[in-house]
Protein backbone atom coordinates (compact mmCIF):
# COMPACT_ATOMS: atom_id res chain seq x y z
CA UNK A 1 0.00 0.00 0.00
CA UNK A 2 1.38 3.38 -1.01
CA UNK A 3 -0.77 5.52 1.24
CA UNK A 4 0.91 7.34 4.13
CA UNK A 5 1.19 5.59 7.47
CA UNK A 6 -1.27 7.17 9.92
CA UNK A 7 -0.70 4.98 12.97
CA UNK A 8 2.54 3.17 13.53
CA UNK A 9 2.77 0.79 16.50
CA UNK A 10 6.32 -0.30 17.24
CA UNK A 11 6.94 -3.06 19.76
CA UNK A 12 4.12 -1.82 22.03
CA UNK A 13 4.17 -3.29 25.53
CA UNK A 14 1.72 -2.98 28.39
CA UNK A 15 1.45 -4.82 31.71
CA UNK A 16 -1.27 -4.76 34.34
CA UNK A 17 0.66 -5.87 37.40
CA UNK A 18 2.11 -9.24 36.49
CA UNK A 19 -0.34 -9.71 33.61
CA UNK A 20 1.22 -9.03 30.24
CA UNK A 21 -1.53 -7.38 28.17
CA UNK A 22 0.61 -6.42 25.18
CA UNK A 23 3.84 -8.24 24.53
CA UNK A 24 5.56 -6.33 21.75
CA UNK A 25 2.94 -5.48 19.12
CA UNK A 26 3.86 -3.81 15.84
CA UNK A 27 1.24 -2.74 13.29
CA UNK A 28 1.10 -0.06 10.61
CA UNK A 29 -2.21 1.50 9.73
CA UNK A 30 -2.27 3.40 6.44
CA UNK A 31 -4.49 6.31 5.48
CA UNK A 32 -7.97 5.16 4.50
CA UNK A 33 -7.36 1.65 5.73
CA UNK A 34 -9.76 -0.34 7.90
CA UNK A 35 -7.92 -2.65 10.26
CA UNK A 36 -9.98 -5.10 12.31
CA UNK A 37 -8.47 -6.53 15.48
CA UNK A 38 -9.93 -9.90 16.38
CA UNK A 39 -9.10 -12.51 18.97
CA UNK A 40 -10.27 -14.01 22.24
CA UNK A 41 -11.25 -11.82 25.25
CA UNK A 42 -8.23 -10.58 27.17
CA UNK A 43 -5.92 -10.98 24.19
CA UNK A 44 -4.94 -7.31 24.26
CA UNK A 45 -6.85 -5.82 21.34
CA UNK A 46 -8.88 -3.36 23.43
CA UNK A 47 -5.77 -2.47 25.43
CA UNK A 48 -3.98 -1.59 22.20
CA UNK A 49 -6.84 0.73 21.28
CA UNK A 50 -6.84 2.36 24.72
CA UNK A 51 -3.07 2.84 24.52
CA UNK A 52 -3.55 4.53 21.15
CA UNK A 53 -5.34 7.52 22.63
CA UNK A 54 -3.57 7.46 25.96
CA UNK A 55 -6.34 6.07 28.16
CA UNK A 56 -3.66 3.54 29.15
CA UNK A 57 0.03 4.40 29.37
CA UNK A 58 2.58 2.31 27.50
CA UNK A 59 5.18 0.30 29.38
CA UNK A 60 7.39 -0.07 26.32
CA UNK A 61 7.66 0.66 22.63
CA UNK A 62 6.01 3.62 20.95
CA UNK A 63 3.07 4.70 18.84
CA UNK A 64 3.27 7.43 16.20
CA UNK A 65 0.48 9.43 14.63
CA UNK A 66 1.41 10.85 11.21
CA UNK A 67 5.07 10.14 11.93
CA UNK A 68 5.15 11.91 15.29
CA UNK A 69 5.68 9.79 18.40
CA UNK A 70 2.81 10.23 20.84
CA UNK A 71 3.74 12.17 23.97
CA UNK A 72 3.61 10.55 27.39
CA UNK A 73 2.26 13.59 29.19
CA UNK A 74 -1.42 14.11 29.90
CA UNK A 75 -1.50 17.58 28.36
CA UNK A 76 0.40 16.41 25.28
CA UNK A 77 -2.09 13.60 24.78
CA UNK A 78 -4.97 16.07 24.78
CA UNK A 79 -3.94 17.47 21.40
CA UNK A 80 -3.56 13.96 20.05
CA UNK A 81 -6.93 12.77 21.33
CA UNK A 82 -8.85 15.45 19.50
CA UNK A 83 -7.42 14.02 16.26
CA UNK A 84 -8.69 10.52 17.05
CA UNK A 85 -12.32 9.58 17.52
CA UNK A 86 -13.11 6.81 19.96
CA UNK A 87 -16.27 4.74 20.20
CA UNK A 88 -16.79 2.61 23.31
CA UNK A 89 -18.54 -0.70 23.83
CA UNK A 90 -20.89 0.86 26.37
CA UNK A 91 -21.55 4.03 24.26
CA UNK A 92 -20.83 6.38 27.17
CA UNK A 93 -23.14 9.10 25.95
CA UNK A 94 -23.54 11.87 28.52
CA UNK A 95 -26.96 11.12 30.05
CA UNK A 96 -27.53 14.65 31.37
CA UNK A 97 -27.37 16.17 27.89
CA UNK A 98 -29.62 15.86 24.85
CA UNK A 99 -28.46 13.94 21.80
CA UNK A 100 -27.44 17.05 19.89
CA UNK A 101 -25.70 18.51 22.96
CA UNK A 102 -23.68 15.30 23.19
CA UNK A 103 -22.50 15.74 19.61
CA UNK A 104 -21.78 19.45 20.16
CA UNK A 105 -19.82 18.95 23.37
CA UNK A 106 -16.40 18.23 21.81
CA UNK A 107 -16.52 21.06 19.26
CA UNK A 108 -17.72 23.58 21.87
CA UNK A 109 -15.45 22.72 24.81
CA UNK A 110 -12.34 21.50 22.99
CA UNK A 111 -12.35 23.18 19.56
CA UNK A 112 -13.98 26.36 20.94
CA UNK A 113 -16.46 26.52 18.09
CA UNK A 114 -19.41 28.86 18.55
CA UNK A 115 -22.63 27.13 19.54
CA UNK A 116 -24.14 27.90 16.12
CA UNK A 117 -21.24 26.38 14.22
CA UNK A 118 -21.20 23.36 16.52
CA UNK A 119 -24.95 22.90 16.12
CA UNK A 120 -24.70 23.01 12.33
CA UNK A 121 -21.93 20.46 12.41
CA UNK A 122 -23.89 18.24 14.79
CA UNK A 123 -27.05 18.44 12.65
CA UNK A 124 -25.14 17.27 9.58
CA UNK A 125 -23.68 14.34 11.51
CA UNK A 126 -26.99 13.30 13.08
CA UNK A 127 -28.46 13.33 9.58
CA UNK A 128 -25.59 11.14 8.47
CA UNK A 129 -26.23 8.53 11.17
CA UNK A 130 -29.98 8.78 10.55
CA UNK A 131 -30.99 10.31 13.87
CA UNK A 132 -31.98 13.88 13.06
CA UNK A 133 -35.40 13.39 14.61
CA UNK A 134 -33.82 12.40 17.95
CA UNK A 135 -31.72 15.56 18.28
CA UNK A 136 -33.63 16.88 21.29
CA UNK A 137 -34.13 13.52 23.02
CA UNK A 138 -32.10 12.31 25.96
CA UNK A 139 -29.85 9.30 25.43
CA UNK A 140 -31.82 7.15 27.91
CA UNK A 141 -34.83 7.20 25.57
CA UNK A 142 -32.82 5.73 22.66
CA UNK A 143 -32.18 2.10 21.78
CA UNK A 144 -28.66 0.76 22.12
CA UNK A 145 -28.09 0.92 18.38
CA UNK A 146 -29.30 4.51 18.26
CA UNK A 147 -27.08 5.47 21.20
CA UNK A 148 -24.06 3.97 19.51
CA UNK A 149 -24.82 5.86 16.31
CA UNK A 150 -24.96 9.08 18.34
CA UNK A 151 -21.62 8.11 19.92
CA UNK A 152 -20.16 7.74 16.43
CA UNK A 153 -21.52 11.16 15.47
CA UNK A 154 -20.07 12.62 18.67
CA UNK A 155 -16.62 11.28 17.79
CA UNK A 156 -16.90 12.45 14.17
CA UNK A 157 -17.78 15.96 15.33
CA UNK A 158 -14.11 16.46 16.17
CA UNK A 159 -13.31 15.72 12.50
CA UNK A 160 -10.73 13.11 13.50
CA UNK A 161 -8.07 11.68 11.22
CA UNK A 162 -8.65 8.20 12.55
CA UNK A 163 -11.53 6.44 14.29
CA UNK A 164 -11.01 3.84 17.00
CA UNK A 165 -13.87 1.42 17.67
CA UNK A 166 -13.71 -0.68 20.83
CA UNK A 167 -16.18 -3.55 20.35
CA UNK A 168 -18.88 -1.13 19.20
CA UNK A 169 -21.58 -3.76 18.80
CA UNK A 170 -20.83 -6.11 21.71
CA UNK A 171 -23.33 -4.48 24.07
CA UNK A 172 -26.12 -4.28 21.51
CA UNK A 173 -29.28 -6.30 21.02
CA UNK A 174 -28.82 -8.42 17.90
CA UNK A 175 -31.47 -6.52 15.97
CA UNK A 176 -29.66 -3.20 16.33
CA UNK A 177 -26.16 -4.45 15.42
CA UNK A 178 -26.80 -4.03 11.70
CA UNK A 179 -27.63 -0.32 11.83
CA UNK A 180 -24.36 0.44 13.63
CA UNK A 181 -22.28 -1.69 11.28
CA UNK A 182 -23.93 0.02 8.30
CA UNK A 183 -22.89 3.42 9.60
CA UNK A 184 -19.36 2.11 10.06
CA UNK A 185 -19.33 0.60 6.58
CA UNK A 186 -20.38 3.91 5.05
CA UNK A 187 -17.65 5.66 7.01
CA UNK A 188 -15.10 3.19 5.67
CA UNK A 189 -16.37 3.71 2.12
CA UNK A 190 -15.82 7.46 2.55
CA UNK A 191 -12.16 6.74 3.21
CA UNK A 192 -12.00 7.10 7.00
CA UNK A 193 -9.00 5.40 8.58
CA UNK A 194 -10.40 2.97 11.14
CA UNK A 195 -9.09 0.57 13.75
CA UNK A 196 -11.91 -1.71 14.88
CA UNK A 197 -11.84 -4.20 17.72
CA UNK A 198 -14.68 -6.55 16.91
CA UNK A 199 -16.23 -9.96 17.24
CA UNK A 200 -18.32 -9.38 14.11
CA UNK A 201 -16.45 -11.63 11.71
CA UNK A 202 -18.76 -10.95 8.77
CA UNK A 203 -18.11 -7.22 9.18
CA UNK A 204 -14.36 -7.79 9.34
CA UNK A 205 -14.58 -9.94 6.25
CA UNK A 206 -16.70 -7.46 4.30
CA UNK A 207 -15.15 -4.15 5.33
CA UNK A 208 -11.60 -4.65 6.61
CA UNK A 209 -8.56 -4.16 4.40
CA UNK A 210 -6.59 -6.06 6.94
CA UNK A 211 -7.43 -8.36 9.84
CA UNK A 212 -5.11 -8.87 12.78
CA UNK A 213 -5.60 -11.86 15.08
CA UNK A 214 -4.43 -11.36 18.68
CA UNK A 215 -3.71 -13.87 21.36
CA UNK A 216 -2.05 -13.34 24.74
CA UNK A 217 -0.91 -9.84 23.89
CA UNK A 218 0.75 -10.74 20.63
CA UNK A 219 -0.16 -10.95 16.96
CA UNK A 220 -0.87 -14.49 15.77
CA UNK A 221 -1.48 -13.65 12.14
CA UNK A 222 -2.31 -10.62 10.06
CA UNK A 223 -3.36 -10.25 6.49
CA UNK A 224 -6.19 -9.38 4.14
CA UNK A 225 -9.56 -10.89 5.12
CA UNK A 226 -9.39 -13.40 2.27
CA UNK A 227 -6.24 -14.85 3.77
CA UNK A 228 -7.37 -14.84 7.40
CA UNK A 229 -10.85 -16.23 6.78
CA UNK A 230 -10.28 -18.51 3.80
CA UNK A 231 -6.67 -19.57 3.88
CA UNK A 232 -5.13 -18.90 7.30
CA UNK A 233 -1.47 -19.78 7.39
CA UNK A 234 -1.40 -20.31 11.15
CA UNK A 235 -3.17 -23.25 12.80
CA UNK A 236 -4.25 -21.05 15.75
CA UNK A 237 -6.20 -18.78 13.40
CA UNK A 238 -8.18 -21.77 12.07
CA UNK A 239 -8.81 -22.84 15.68
CA UNK A 240 -10.10 -19.44 16.76
CA UNK A 241 -12.37 -19.02 13.75
CA UNK A 242 -13.57 -22.59 14.13
CA UNK A 243 -14.60 -21.85 17.73
CA UNK A 244 -16.65 -18.94 16.46
CA UNK A 245 -18.37 -21.23 14.01
CA UNK A 246 -16.63 -19.72 11.02
CA UNK A 247 -15.87 -22.21 8.31
CA UNK A 248 -14.65 -20.09 5.44
Amino acid sequence: MNEAVVLDYRDVRKNFGSFVALNGVSIRVHKGEVVCLIGPSGSGKSTLLRCTNGLEKLDGGEISLDGVVLPRSETGMRDVRRRMGMVFQSFELFPHRTVIANVMMGPVTVLRLSRDEARQRAEVLLEKVGLSEKAESHPASLSGGQQQRVAIARALAMQPEVMLFDEPTSALDPETVGEVLNVMKRLADEGMTMVVVTHEMSFARRVANRVVLFERGAIVEEGPPAQIFDAPTVARTRDFLGHLGWHG
Binding site: N53, E74, T75, R78, G85, E92, T109, A155
Partner: peptide, 16 residues
Amino acid sequence: RGQSEAALALGMSRWQ
Protein backbone atom coordinates in the same frame (compact mmCIF):
# COMPACT_ATOMS: atom_id res chain seq x y z
CA ARG B 1 -15.11 5.79 34.76
CA GLY B 2 -16.30 5.31 31.20
CA GLN B 3 -17.95 8.73 31.37
CA SER B 4 -14.67 10.51 32.10
CA GLU B 5 -12.88 8.38 29.54
CA ALA B 6 -15.39 9.30 26.84
CA ALA B 7 -14.89 12.97 27.69
CA LEU B 8 -11.10 12.64 27.79
CA ALA B 9 -11.21 10.85 24.43
CA LEU B 10 -12.79 14.00 22.95
CA GLY B 11 -9.67 15.89 24.04
CA MET B 12 -11.08 17.58 27.14
CA SER B 13 -8.84 18.62 30.01
CA ARG B 14 -9.35 17.02 33.45
CA TRP B 15 -11.05 20.20 34.61
CA GLN B 16 -13.41 20.28 31.60
